[in-house]
């Protein structure tokens, strides 16, 4: 049941997107989000959306999973669409009492929804196609310059790696414990709030105990192998910018410039 959480789950594969350098992927995701920020009219948002759809297609991951990942914030999406609908300026095309809907209101609510969807799709592409280890490695590599001001980047990266590494483990464990308690007749959907909170104890207790045990074991194991975060170490896998990465960067620059130009073309109505 906890397996339903899709957000932040790596799905192995070897598509073009999987093969991109994680650093490039992270930077490009940020650029994409900035491009979304500039996409204030239909033309520009359509350009962005189409390119996102193309990337999704290239990632060779079932569309179902992408759609599933939007479910988490569907409420938020509806709410923002609603608010935008009523706060438009200009000539109302529809009016009941003090509620009026304008051309601009409709436009901005469509834009907002598309933007949120694009935003989720972009981060999903990044999360689905990049293993957590690659992400931390990329972040470590991107944070390198901070070492100049005496930030221990390696230590931070190690903490992130460990935290990420244990998320699936804990989800699995929670699942296991829940199953075990359920088969002892535990109920997790009681009407009364207090009972519901109480019903969490049989899950949280074993979970915390095993988390602490794991942490101790891990610390001991690291100590046994003389782990020292201040030592420089090499990696088994090193990151290299390849030809696809260059292509991706060029593609993104073109897209970014394109979006800005499109967004400047005031009201060339295509719809």
């Amino acid at each position: 049941m906890l397996g339903n959480i899709v957000l932040g789950q790596y799905i192995p594969g070897n598509s073009l997107i999987h093969k991109l350098d994680p650093r490039v992927k992270i930077l490009l995701s940020i650029v994409y989000m900035m491009a979304l920020f500039f996409a204030w009219n239909y033309l520009s948002i359509i350009v962005v959306t189409l390119s996102v759809l193309a990337l999704m297609f290239l990632s060779k991951i079932p569309v179902k999973l992408y759609i599933k990942s939007t479910k988490v914030i569907i409420l938020f999406m509806i709410l923002s669409a609603f608010l935008n609908l009523f706060y438009g300026e200009g000539e109302p095309i529809f009016k009941i009492g003090f509620i009026s809907i304008t051309q601009q209101g409709i436009q901005s609510s469509i834009l907002v929804v598309l933007r949120i969807i694009d935003l989720i799709f972009i981060s999903s592409i990044l999360m689905f196609t990049t293993s957590p280890n690659d992400i931390t490695f990329a972040i470590e590599s991107l944070m390198k310059p901070l070492e100049k001001i005496k930030v221990n980047v390696q230590e931070i990266a190690m903490m992130m790696t460990i935290a990420l590494r244990f998320i699936p483990t804990f989800l699995e464990e929670t699942d296991k414990i829940m199953s075990a308690q359920k088969s002892r007749g535990a109920k997790f959907n009681d009407k009364s709030m207090i009972k519901r909170i109480k019903s969490l104890i049989p899950i949280l207790m074993p979970l915390f105990i095993s988390a602490f045990r794991r942490a101790c074991d891990l610390a001991l194991a690291m100590d046994c192998r003389c782990y020292d975060s201040s030592k420089r170490r090499t990696r088994m896998k090193t990151l290299k910018i390849g030809r696809i990465d260059i292509f991706a960067i060029i593609f993104l620059i073109v897209l970014f410039v394109g979006v800005i130009i499109c967004s400047k073309m005031k009201n060339i109505a295509i719809i």
Binding site: E173, A180, S183, R184, G185, A186, P202, M205
Partner: peptide, 29 residues
């Protein structure tokens, strides 16, 4: 509840302060 399943490695399902309370959890439910 008529089917009692003892899981593989059931140790992790213990959570109460005393063994008595832990064994009593199922029957109470």
């Amino acid at each position: 509840l008529d089917v009692g399943l003892v899981f593989q490695y059931p140790e992790y399902q213990l959570f109460e302060e005393t063994v008595y309370k832990d064994i009593a959890f199922g029957p109470r439910n």
